Computed example of a mutant assay.
Amino acid sequence: MKVLVVGMTKNPGGIETVVMNYVRNADPRRVQFDFLSASPYIAYEDELLERGSRVAHVPLRHEHPIIFRNELKRFMDAHANEYDAIWVHLCSLVNIDFLKSAYSHGIPKRIIHCHNSQNMWGGFRNMIHAFHRGQITKYATDYWTCSEDAVEWFYGDGIKENPKYAYIPNAINPEDVVFDAHKRIEVREAMGWGGKVVLGNVARLHPQKNQSFLLHALAPILTPSSNVILTIVGDGVLRDSLCQEAEALGIADNVQFLGLRDDVHNLYQGMDAFVLPSKFEGVSIAFLEAQSNGLPCLISDTLSDEGIVNDNVTKLPITAGSEGQWLSAVRQLDDSGNRTQHPHVKGSRHDIHQQVETFYARLRC
């Protein structure tokens, strides 16, 4: 089957990782993935091209709305009849133009895949999302979600009764991040982490991910005299303001902003704990990866239990005044470095090898 994938951006974030996990683990004799994006370049594009995928680009809609519509129509006119399915990954229903175009051009299977439980931006976009929510059953044939907690906000009431609704848990390849004691030593030496307690956050620098709360909560143990450091892996709109906050709090020396990295799987090896204070999520890929590595994880209690597979996960509040609970939890972390007792992702519903088989079946039905 030939599948046209929409939703990848230049940022190697959660959606991009989800898609690549399928691309890397699906049988290319059974499914061919091509890509259409309103980004001039998408994460992993070179790898996709090497794997034989076709990658096409249209202009950003908000920058060039007329050219966007014309280029999208031109692509669909030329290629829609080549595809058995379009797989549209979205964090909200603000832009469903790709889905509408697939509908009008007759792509038979039109999958919309939900990846978030709230609108990241709010305001007028909430109104557009709500309007499109009432239209979505006209344009899509299949309704997938990475989190059942996200369903009501994203799709509205009643979608679970639709026979084409499916809960598709986010999944990773556990072997990619399995704990390796020798690699841990190498990473810590290369990163200059020897003798430090390393708290890791892997996420976009965005209000949703709530890194500002983390800086304020952990400031008392991130002082220059401390052996604790916070490593933030990712980039985004808040990078400058977060750097300024770290400076203002006097903890800049013990907070590392590593930006986008292509060695995140190795960085987990050198960390001592994973911290995720997000205001909301679908199911965080980084959280699954951290668990697969066996890292103790501190996450916000606003997140559902769907992505929890290990027994060393602690949920904590992120309300005003709760910073002390995060501080206390960090101080109580086991610093033995023994993570071999905890990785339970392998064989679970979050194992990509399990989900690829479900993917094949859903494509055929």
Rank of each mutant, 00 (worst) to 15 (best):
V3P: 03
T9I: 07
N11K: 02
Y22I: 04
D27Y: 10
V31E: 11
D34F: 03
A38P: 03
I42C: 06
E45I: 11
L49H: 07
E50W: 15
S53T: 10
V55R: 01
H57T: 07
L60V: 11
L60G: 11
R61Q: 13
I66A: 11
I67W: 15
R69Y: 05
N70Y: 10
C91S: 15
I107Y: 11
C114A: 15
R125D: 12
R125M: 06
N126I: 03
Q135D: 10
T137G: 05
T141R: 13
Y143V: 05
W144S: 08
A150L: 14
V151I: 02
I159N: 00
K160C: 06
N170A: 10
E175Q: 13
E175G: 01
H182D: 15
R184Q: 04
G195C: 09
V198M: 01
L199G: 06
R204Y: 08
P207L: 11
L214W: 00
L218D: 12
A219K: 01
I221H: 06
S226A: 15
V228P: 02
L230C: 02
V237W: 02
E245L: 14
E247L: 12
A248T: 15
A248D: 15
L249I: 13
V255S: 08
Q256N: 05
R261G: 04
H265L: 04
G270D: 09
M271T: 00
A273Y: 00
P277E: 01
P277H: 03
P277Q: 12
P277D: 12
E281Y: 09
V283S: 06
A290Q: 04
Q291F: 11
G294Y: 02
G294S: 03
I299V: 14
D301G: 02
E306A: 09
G307R: 02
D311R: 08
T314M: 12
E323S: 08
L327E: 14
S328R: 11
S328C: 12
A329S: 06
L333W: 03
N338V: 01
R339K: 11
P343F: 13
P343H: 01
H350L: 08
D351R: 04
I352Q: 09
